[in-house]
Design a binder for these strands. Structure first.
Lengths: 160, 160
DNA sequence: TGCGATTAAATTGTGCGCAATGAAATTTGC
DNA sequence: GCAAATTTCATTGCGCACAATTTAATCGCA
């Protein structure tokens, strides 16, 4: 009753919003930042950024994909991938060639250097496993929960 | 034995690397993307991006922080925050004033419009909770696991 | 007191991420 | 067969993210 209130009766006290530290979205955001920061010094000797590393992981699994196929795996569009792939090409790791059968598509193929880089990346997953400080079981649980979360958010978005 | 091999005996078969979809880092990366995409249409009426919303959450918790204090909460540096805060200032949501006692510091204060925006943000957390499709217990578990993961990655980085 | 070291922001440069648009090739529907 | 719709990629523009550098203010200390 301290102060006079004129028109509205709302805003009596500050609107309740969850604190930043209690919000799942921020925990995810911070974890993504932490992964990026952890990867950076490990990828620096390979001359890759983290998104470039993800792209190489895709290509090491399956070579000769189109831009949109890579984008489908990573959830990125051509506006992100085109310049990224041009940088990988400039680094001599991939080639970009128009598909002869369908010239709209650009196929991304590993060069020998791009294939060879896989050797240098071999030790990275173990280092990250170690840095995570988590058991395999815990990681598996977390991975599964994040997968369901991502799928649910996607479905909610699709439902509008 | 199909092809002749000359110098090296390595690269006999492709180096084993975990598949993209089995890597925790990618699950986190994809979840962060999904959150961003889910927030976007909800924040659009407020005229905020997701990082701007996080900044406003910090300021709604505690007004009048310095740039570096906000950065400490969000894990961002002045290179990111300075232009972001200038955009919030241009939008009329915050003011940026040099601290009289220590002119190196810039204090960020909410304007009445910035405080008022909190009302419009009230419904957002519930919408995200719904979109996540998870129980409160599940969210709590996920939140805790991500917190430990982020802390462990930070500690591993600090240990070099 | 005054000078070197430290701290806080701002600036610059590079790269990611996405929306919107454009251009070229292919597919479709008649 | 051919015009319209669709698909694929490239481009542009804006904003985030971070490393490195710069500028200015403060602190430490002899």
């Amino acid at each position: 009753m301290a102060r006079t209130r004129n028109a509205t009766k709302a805003a009596a006290d500050p609107v309740s919003l969850p604190k930043l530290d209690n919000q799942l979205c921020f925990a995810v955001y911070a974890a993504a930042q932490a992964f990026n920061a952890t990867y950076k010094p490990l990828l620096e000797p390979l001359g890759l950024t983290y998104p470039q590393y993800l792209t190489m992981l895709v290509l090491w699994e399956e070579d000769g994909l189109t831009v949109s196929a890579i984008g489908g795996r990573l959830g990125l569009d051509s506006g992100t991938l085109t310049p990224l792939l041009k940088r990988l090409e400039a680094a001599g790791l991939v080639s970009r060639t128009r598909d002869a059968a369908d010239e709209r598509q650009v196929r991304i193929a590993l060069t020998p250097a791009g294939r060879g880089l896989r050797q240098k990346a071999r030790g990275i997953p173990a280092k990250l496993l170690c840095a995570s400080g988590m058991s395999l079981g815990e990681i598996k649980g977390l991975h599964g929960a994040l997968g369901r979360l991502t799928a649910n958010l996607g479905a909610a978005r699709a439902a509008d």
